[in-house]
């Protein structure tokens, strides 16, 4: 059911996104930083699922708050003539890599244990 929801969400979002009107190039930075923030939230969510401490409220609030906050920061940076979005980018991408590492470790460990079990089974 969740997978179906994800698929439907992705497809509908893609279709609407393709057909959406073009926003000015100047504001595309905001969208880009929002995308990065959202992706970071997604990886964070996956990590928390693997760690079995996934909380929907935290996920959703993190998803939207991070995006909006990053957009706000970028806007502030433009007003201050300071590229704050770079800082946000560094943080988000860094966290994405951390989360990816956790996910990778989790699955590799799982795979290794499985393999070891198989070996033990064969030995028995």
């Amino acid at each position: 059911m969740i997978i179906i929801a994800i698929l439907i969400g992705c497809i509908v979002g893609a279709i609407i996104g393709i057909n959406a009107p073009i926003i000015p190039y100047t504001y595309s930075t905001f969208l880009a930083i929002a995308v990065v923030a959202a992706l970071d939230s997604v990886f964070g969510g996956i990590t928390s699922v693997l760690k079995k401490n996934f909380d929907l409220t935290i996920f959703i609030s993190g998803f939207f708050c991070n995006s909006i906050l990053s957009i706000a920061l970028t806007y502030l940076g433009q007003k201050l003539n300071l590229d704050i979005y770079l800082a946000a980018l560094v943080v988000f991408v860094g966290r994405m890599f951390t989360n990816l590492t956790i996910i990778r470790r989790h699955y590799i460990e799982k795979w290794m244990t499985k393999k070891q079990e198989n070996v033990e089974n064969v030995q028995e």
């Binding site: 969400g9 979002g13 893609a14 996104g17 959406a20 073009i22 959202a38």
Partner: peptide
């Protein structure tokens, strides 16, 4: 999750476009 996926995809594709 569907809504968040929708939002993510929407923004991503808008940006791609």
């Amino acid at each position: 999750i569907g809504i968040s996926c929708f939002a993510l995809m929407l923004v991503m594709f808008m940006q791609f476009k």
